[in-house]
Design a protein around this nucleic acid. Structure first.
Lengths: 156, 156
DNA sequence: ACCCTGGGTTGCAAAATCAAACTCAGATGC
DNA sequence: GCATCTGAGTTTGATTTTGCAACCCAGGGT
């Protein structure tokens, strides 16, 4: 399944992201990795996913350079492997945060948000939004989508 | 499938979002809806998805208030139904854009981005990022996740 | 009356998921 | 030295989803 592109446009960046992230459990595996989980058994226990599925997802994430498999040896233990986020994996923090923001806004639990994102230095509460290159936020209703340099002549 | 929560924490906003959006094709259906597609046959042709799966995904999206089903009648034609985005659906523009941004950055095609987001008034190029409540962008490496008011005592 | 088209449903094969059992290798206890 | 435990998977078989093709139905056109 690694090279099957969903939908008809292999250039669509959403479809290409989904090729890596679109299978069941993958995003939750990334969520755990962002929360600091590195070991197979910890992923497995925290998610409650079947071990064969977890092994497949971790392999896919390693294959697409979201995670790296490392071997390490703790004091007086045998060698084990752990899964560490790459830069690409850490960048998924934005994707995960946008999912979380949508879920908190449109499917609230009534308890308030479970996780918040804050600026380390100032402790200010953060959210995900469109911004200009000089860092000014633009509200969603003033954003338009236009076709970019990689678009095919006819389609958008 | 509508009430099965993936993973162990039903309060996790990512998992709750994935309950609505996590099945195969769902995100691409939303992508097409954001691009202005409203009719069953247009979704079907543009995505190349099986009709039964498309019908199931549209029903789920209607059920969870991402789309609304409307009836309309064009000149000299019979009544048909169309699917229009709700506010919740339009808010998914941020989620889709973050997917697109990650795909363009970490799985580039070599042709450049297919779609770009611009501010309507100024035509400035936009991207997705963390911002403070007063609209100042904060780079990812200065962002930390902390548990919020809805978190359970022990877990984060 | 017959055909066409949009918007689905039905039935069946193929693929993915699940849960439990099994493997394997190195540490630990006896 | 042998049995046992633990982490990290693989194998096996049942259950669910998905994919695909065929069918259905209603309204309009001819």
């Amino acid at each position: 399944m690694a090279t099957t592109v969903l939908g008809k446009d292999p250039r669509c960046p959403v479809a290409r992201s989904l090729e890596v992230l679109g299978e069941k459990w993958t995003i939750l595996v990334v969520r755990e990795a962002l929360a600091g989980v590195t070991r197979f058994s910890d992923f497995q226990q925290r998610l409650g996913v079947a071990k064969d599925v977890l092994a497949a997802r971790l392999s896919t994430l390693v294959e697409f350079d979201v995670l790296e498999r490392h071997s390490y040896r703790a004091e007086g233990e045998r060698e084990r492997s752990e899964y560490l986020l790459t830069d690409a994996g850490r960048d998924l923090g934005v994707v995960l945060a946008s999912f979380a923001q949508w879920g908190d806004t449109h499917r609230p639990t009534g308890f308030g948000p479970v996780v918040e994102h804050r600026e380390r230095a100032t402790n200010e509460l953060l959210h995900i939004a469109f911004v200009t290159s000089d860092g000014r936020e633009v509200p969603l209703d003033r954003v338009e989508s236009v076709s970019g340099p990689g678009a095919l002549p006819a389609a958008g």
